[in-house]
Amino acid sequence: MSSSVRVVIADDHPLFLDGLRGLLAELGATVVAEAQDGRAALDAVLRHRPDVVFMDLRMPGLGGIEATARIVEQAPDTAVVVLTMSEDTASLQAALQAGARGYLLKESSKKDVARALEAVARGELVIGPGVASKVRHAVGGFSPQVFPQLSEAEVRVLELMAEGLDNRSTAARLFLAEKTVRNRVSSILTKLDVTTRAEAMVRARDAGLGTGPAGPGSRADHPS
């Protein structure tokens, strides 16, 4: 999917720019412009209308948060993915409130960047593994807006699926009947347009839901 993605990179560190440019080329994405401050990033977005902007937060002049807010307002079809060294909750919260659709640390792997490209292309929010645990504090718990097609109740079930819980364990955790959980799982798979629990779990983890690997009670290989 990343082969058709057009990208603008905004970062004021030349070595990091070079590395990210090379990584995106390996993933098949096209870098249409680079910028070393927020103002230049905004200008590049308005000129090239890319699919994604990888945005550093701390740059001279117009910073990444304000640049993100302006891009979201003036080019809403462009997804902003913050790529930063900042792990603090305040930066994460500010980026999400500004409208960023992703938040990754600069130490993220090639796989994390590839998943981010694919997730934002689907219109989803993506939070990197290094900061996913902070999302609860930043936004007061996972919002259904992570997957806007799901209800809040379905997001809760999906989160537990991502943690590796099977239907029985999920039902016990949420004080629900197991049949109710099965029905919600079926609805989740339909709304996410996937056929297996494993696919739904990958989508959920890409968006920052779930905190650990599937445990002994996991039913990742079963659709319901």
Rank of each mutant, 00 (worst) to 15 (best):
Q149R: 11
G212P: 01
S218I: 01
T190C: 04
E159L: 11
T170D: 05
A162T: 04
A177T: 09
E163D: 15
F142W: 14
V202Y: 00
S143I: 05
P129I: 04
L150C: 09
E199L: 11
V135T: 05
P148T: 06
V131P: 00
E178S: 07
T190S: 10
A207I: 02
R203D: 01
R184H: 15
S151R: 08
T170A: 07
R184Y: 13
G208A: 08
R156S: 11
M161F: 10
L158N: 02
L165K: 14
L192M: 14
L158R: 01
M201L: 12
G140P: 12
V194D: 07
A214R: 12
R156I: 04
V202H: 03
A214I: 09
I188Y: 00
V185Y: 01
L150G: 02
L189H: 04
R184L: 15
L158E: 03
S186N: 14
L158S: 00
R184G: 00
V194T: 04
D193F: 07
E163M: 08
S143Y: 04
S186L: 14
V194M: 09
I188E: 03
I188C: 10
V135N: 01
D166L: 03
A214G: 15
A132P: 04
V157D: 03
L160P: 04
Q149E: 13
E163P: 04
K134D: 02
F147D: 00
V157S: 13
G212T: 15
V181C: 06
R205E: 06
R173T: 09
R173Y: 09
P223M: 04
R156E: 08
R182F: 11
G130W: 08
D193A: 13
P148K: 11
D193W: 02
P144S: 13
F142L: 09
L160G: 00
E154Q: 15
F147C: 05
S143V: 06
E154M: 07
F142Q: 03
R136I: 07
V146G: 01
T180P: 00
L174M: 13
T196C: 07
G217I: 10
G210S: 04
N167P: 10
P144G: 07
R136V: 09
T180Q: 14
S187V: 13
H222K: 05
V131R: 01
Q149C: 09
R182Y: 10
G212M: 14
D221Y: 13
S143Q: 12
A132T: 08
G130P: 06
D193L: 05
K134R: 14
K191V: 10
V139I: 14
Q149K: 08
V135K: 02
H137D: 09
Q145M: 10
A214E: 14
M201W: 00
G130N: 12
V146D: 00
